[in-house]
Design a protein around this nucleic acid. Sequence first.
DNA 1: CACTAAGTACGAAAGTTTTCGTTGACATTA
DNA 2: TAATGTCAACGAAAACTTTCGTACTTAGTG
Lengths: 130, 130
Amino acid sequence: MPKRDAPRPTDAELEILNVLWQRGACTVRDVQQAISRAKPAVGYTTVLKLMQIMAEKGLVERDETERAHVYEARLAREQTQRQLIGDLLERAFEGSATKLVMQALSAKKASAEELTTIREMLDEFERGES
Amino acid sequence: MPKRDAPRPTDAELEILNVLWQRGACTVRDVQQAISRAKPAVGYTTVLKLMQIMAEKGLVERDETERAHVYEARLAREQTQRQLIGDLLERAFEGSATKLVMQALSAKKASAEELTTIREMLDEFERGES
DNA sequence: CACTAAGTACGAAAGTTTTCGTTGACATTA
DNA sequence: TAATGTCAACGAAAACTTTCGTACTTAGTG
């Protein structure tokens, strides 16, 4: 049986994935401490349980060779980002990427620098597509 | 007491909001039928219950003057879209609108026409901001 | 009036997500 | 070796989401 598609990660799962993407493969303790640095702190076993569930769901891969298991995100950050964007596109934007981009720019006042980067991206995108 | 901020709508709630945005103020039956046209059908009382909860949460406003209550989205579609995008930006894109736009374009192959529209938006945005 | 149709309210079940306590295994060290 | 600390596993509680059955109300109709 091939690995089933990874489901959309929940909020708490995404928080864990962010740590794994930023720091690479991690133990549960690594992740728990990283999260607790930025937040009111969540218990160790909470994070452990979530990561076990994520392994079952196929969101992360677990290396059990060491006593402290090491977890790694199974999909690249960009891949998950595309998944989340595509999902939101369908659920809230009627599939219109244009509208989504428009709201993205007004949701977070983009800097001039960002706008330039986006313009460059558009150029590249157009070249690659046509 | 001022109305508390509307929380992020859940998946099922967003589906209802989509109907209200598209058709304007609606009764529960209107919404239930609209949803059932596009889906395996969900029960009437399910939709009713959801809309009652949404009224409590402040996602919709309810007009009870008629026997069949009439519901209306409390926030404009664009406002909710911004909320969802802003939320996703924080949770999955480290706040980088640029990265989000990039993934949006590659998640859904944007057409040349869309790219043009986006460019125009960027121009307008830049003028308005600087 | 009795009956039916269409509506709201309510509560509870089922599913999912998030939380953490407890247990037992294993390692480190006094 | 005994005590202490770290870990995975498990189960269950708590919170939230989605579903629908049932009861009650009101309006229309024979």
